[in-house]
């Protein structure tokens, strides 16, 4: 039988691949945003009227910038954080994923799309000729699973 030759295919594609050797995981770039915002939030909540100890006076008004790094499965990524303090309180927080070369390239080359919690569409709404999924798996497996569930209820 005629079949594509895997090894040759791999060899050719590997040799001609211009893709990155290392890259950060772009899909994780949301995480530091959340973390940084969460970290800053208590400061925002520190209202001078509440008599909290960490009130005005601890920080001079102004705009502060900083950056941090975090490890993810794809390597190390950076975030830039800008905090604005007015009247001794945090009035604004901006967090940007560091536009480091690998991170940016990663997003452009490997993942153009990132979506949170995809709801999807009903199959009735879309016109397709095939469905690819896992609902049709091994009959033997499904029967066994049904049997175990039945036994558990007995």
């Amino acid at each position: 039988m005629r079949l594509p030759r895997t090894r040759e295919l791999f060899a050719v594609t590997a040799a001609t691949s211009a893709l990155l050797m290392t890259a950060a995981c772009g899909s994780d770039s949301d995480s530091p945003t959340d973390d940084a915002t969460t970290t800053a939030a208590p400061t925002t909540d520190t209202d001078a009227d509440s008599g909290s100890t960490a009130s005005s006076g601890d920080y001079a008004d102004g705009t502060y910038e900083g950056s941090g790094s975090y490890a993810n499965p794809g390597g190390v990524s950076e975030v830039d954080v800008t905090i604005t303090i007015s009247d001794g309180k945090v009035s604004d927080v901006e967090v940007e994923p560091g536009a480091s070369g690998t991170s940016l390239q990663y997003q452009q080359k490997f993942i153009s799309g990132i979506a949170d919690e995809v709801v999807g569409k009903s199959l009735d709404e879309i016109s397709v000729s095939k469905v690819s999924g896992s609902s049709l798996t091994s009959q033997g497996f499904n029967q066994a699973l049904d049997q175990i569930k039945a036994d558990a209820q007995a």
Binding site: T13, A14, L20, D116
Partner: peptide, 29 residues
């Protein structure tokens, strides 16, 4: 394995759904 590792070895198009509900896919899907 992470997508970049696999794409480096073999060009292909992919969609992956993670346990936290997020979905990622290749730019040329």
């Amino acid at each position: 394995a992470p997508p970049e590792t696999l794409l480096e070895a073999v060009p292909h198009r992919f969609v992956r759904v993670h346990a936290d509900g997020t979905v990622t896919w290749s730019p040329d899907l």
